[in-house]
Design a protein around this nucleic acid. Structure first.
Lengths: 237, 237
DNA sequence: TTTACTTATGCGCGCGTCGCATCTATGTCA
DNA sequence: TGACATAGATGCGACGCGCGCATAAGTAAA
């Protein structure tokens, strides 16, 4: 084993000479349901942090890109084929995992309500509601869930990222089916921002943006006047 | 060596059992000089990509956080003690480095002009101008520099990040000395955005924000009416 | 069929922001 | 002392956006 300082240049560096961090990806899977943000979590049954809730994650293989690893975890651990995936932030504190040194690249995955419901029915993950500031994760009964490792911080960063991007990007549409009402779009914005918005102003802003196309059809199930269904102009999402 | 699939849970995983990516940090060191963005680059003298220009970087040690690694590279490779450091994005394509599989966490470091000049005088790094869209790196004579690996993509992401954040964060002040004129602040914004801005509107917006404090002093060297010097209210930056 | 209720949709007012043009102030330099 | 360059202030107009209100369009109950 050569003696090359870790501070030396990459050129001439022997990758086997030094211990290196492991690299994982963790997925923050979010959906907007009933004007609230929900995240999919796994209940840990092993030590450490048994009984705590964790984000789905997995190691990055040597022959696999970060994006590919995120897609694989989405497929294998959540049972989902496609979703709006976007890199969020990389967490690399020394003691963030007590078992070994792990650097994790967090990804954000935005789901439609039926995707989240289907993943939950598959039984490997459970949806939790994200509320409050600072962020808490609650189950259906409203009791707080304790989160494993630094996953509460990861969820907080995810929510902050959403809040910062929602009103100038088209990421809100990733939470919605292909055809949706303006009310549903506003619900997504309110769930992400945690506030209420002015309806006529929201309506105008969205329509003036030129990104929405009216389909002429209307929602079917409503017990009131049915709203018009829109879709996104480009094949965004 | 046990046979645990890379897709298995982290629990019960032997970190020595599989090849893992190496983790590095790369630093995008930027300054705003004469209404243009400049970046500090290292000229590679070894294969691969000898003669190309690269970002300063280094491996992340096993007992070192990502932020600490970035600070260490800043100190050891650039000779700089303190700077506004902020994580940018993590690049993990399989073939981004031909020597080995490397996942790199890119950091953004914002420098004041005299910091960049001092680092350049130290002789290890050279400043290049970032111009155009898509981004190009030019030397003093205006000829393009060829960048190593995926470092052009990293620089592009850095510039995009700056453009997205400059008008709602206080990152512009990291480019400026403690006391500065409104004209200098506007120059920073124009360098980052690559556009020209309206002077009275910019002035009003900045002053109305309540973040600036007038010092009462004025710049000294001007061959015209000297502008007032301001500073940031909080010890931001 | 009528009536009450709920929600969608459209219209108009007012405020604050921002771009633009213009004017004044204050320094240097010939 | 006057030309010149830039700082700094002010006023006008367009536009975005919050907000209230009127109206339309459905359902459900009487």
């Amino acid at each position: 084993m050569e003696h090359i300082s870790i501070g030396d240049d990459i050129d001439g560096y022997d990758p086997a000479a030094y211990d290196r961090p492991s690299v994982t990806v963790d997925l923050v899977l979010l959906a907007s349901i009933e004007r609230q943000l929900h995240a999919l979590l796994l209940r840990r049954d092993q030590s450490p942090q048994a009984g705590c809730w964790a984000l789905p994650g997995g190691f990055v293989a040597i022959d696999e890109s970060l994006d590919a690893a995120a897609a694989r975890v989405l497929r294998d651990k959540v049972g989902m084929e496609r979703a709006h995936l976007e890199q969020l932030y990389t967490f690399g504190a020394i003691d963030r995992d007590p078992r070994m040194r792990i650097v994790t690249v967090a990804y954000l995955a935005l789901l439609r309500p039926e995707q989240m419901a289907r993943a939950e029915r598959a039984g490997r993950v459970t949806a939790a509601t994200l509320v409050g500031d600072p962020l808490r994760a609650c189950n259906g009964e409203g009791t707080d869930l304790s989160l494993a490792f630094d996953h509460r911080a990861i969820l907080s960063v995810a929510r902050e990222r959403l809040r910062g991007k929602i009103d100038y990007s088209d990421l809100a549409f990733a939470f919605l089916p292909e055809r949706f009402t303006l009310r549903a779009l506003q619900d997504v914005h309110e769930a992400v921002l945690g506030t209420t918005l002015n309806k006529p102003a929201f309506r105008r802003k969205m329509l003036d943006r030129g990104q929405l196309v009216a389909t002429g059809d209307r929602e079917a199930d409503a017990s009131h006047r049915p709203a018009e269904l829109f879709r996104v102009r480009d094949a965004a999402v």
